[in-house]
Amino acid sequence: MPLKELAERRTLLHRKSDAQTIIAHALDDQAIGPVAMVSSFGADSVVLLHMLAQVDKGAPVLFVDTEFLFPATLTYQRDVAEHLGLTDIRVIKPSRAALLERDVDGILHHFDPDACCALRKTEPLERALEGFGGWITGRKRIHGGARQSLPLYEKNARRIKINPLADWTQTMVSDYIASHDLPRHPMVAQGFPSIGCQPCTTPAKDDEDPRAGRWRGQQKTECGIHFIDGVPQRRAS
């Protein structure tokens, strides 16, 4: 079955399913094949990670360490994994040879942030996803931009991308975290509703889009790992 049709069928099938059910079915979906969760261990990540732990603590979780992350994120990643009992966290890093060739001084993000994201995030994740037929993300329609029409399942190049929280609101996220007494990323309290790499992340005001602090002042709104038919998505100017 073509991937686009498979994604549309699964979206229709799970249109009334809760997020944890979607995760459980995705991990056991023979038509998709092996599935991993990709997590930034960011502001809202603990919701999906907690759901995954209820289904299968040994399911693979891919965490891309760009080597530009906030120290608080690295600490939070270790603490959350231990707290939830997740046993297959795979820390993905950029190729040393590629860094020496293309960003030896660590300043690529200043003049070509797209190339920096490709080097430090997109390419390492693509290598880590080899052998997987699908991956689970925490993207939501409330993030705005190209995500406003986000489906539960979508075709992503050679794989199926699963978005169990596509229709969740920020209130639903906060209520879930509170009701399960889950640890929050410490930077959320400092005004960071979306947390990426240090050079490209700033706080966002309460009345701003949650991702307003990512690549502030630029047209860029995605790191590059989220594509629609192979094209990086940006907010319309």
Rank of each mutant, 00 (worst) to 15 (best):
M1W: 12
V46Q: 08
A118L: 12
V38G: 12
K93F: 04
R10M: 12
R9M: 06
S39Y: 08
R211A: 01
P232M: 13
K4H: 13
R159N: 10
G144N: 00
S39V: 11
K220S: 08
V46G: 02
H25A: 15
Y176N: 02
I195G: 10
D209R: 05
D181V: 02
H143Q: 14
H143M: 10
V47Y: 06
R234D: 15
P183G: 02
F192T: 03
V188N: 08
H83S: 01
V104S: 15
V188R: 09
Q190I: 08
P186I: 12
R90D: 04
T122H: 01
E8D: 11
G106T: 10
V173P: 06
P124K: 02
L6F: 05
V61N: 03
T87N: 11
D206L: 14
L84F: 04
A204P: 07
P34N: 01
R96M: 11
R141H: 09
G224H: 06
G213D: 04
E101V: 00
R78G: 12
G42P: 13
V91H: 10
T75P: 00
E101K: 14
R139E: 04
I23S: 02
F41D: 12
A24L: 06
Q20I: 14
A146K: 07
C197N: 06
G58K: 06
V46S: 07
H83N: 03
L125S: 03
A236C: 07
V55M: 05
E5H: 11
T201N: 04
M187H: 09
D103C: 13
G42L: 03
I142W: 01
V104H: 13
G230M: 09
L52F: 03
I225E: 00
Q218W: 11
L150C: 13
K4F: 05
V80G: 03
R158E: 14
V64T: 07
M172G: 13
S95N: 14
L12F: 07
C200E: 00
A98N: 01
I228N: 06
T221H: 05
P186R: 05
L62S: 08
A43K: 10
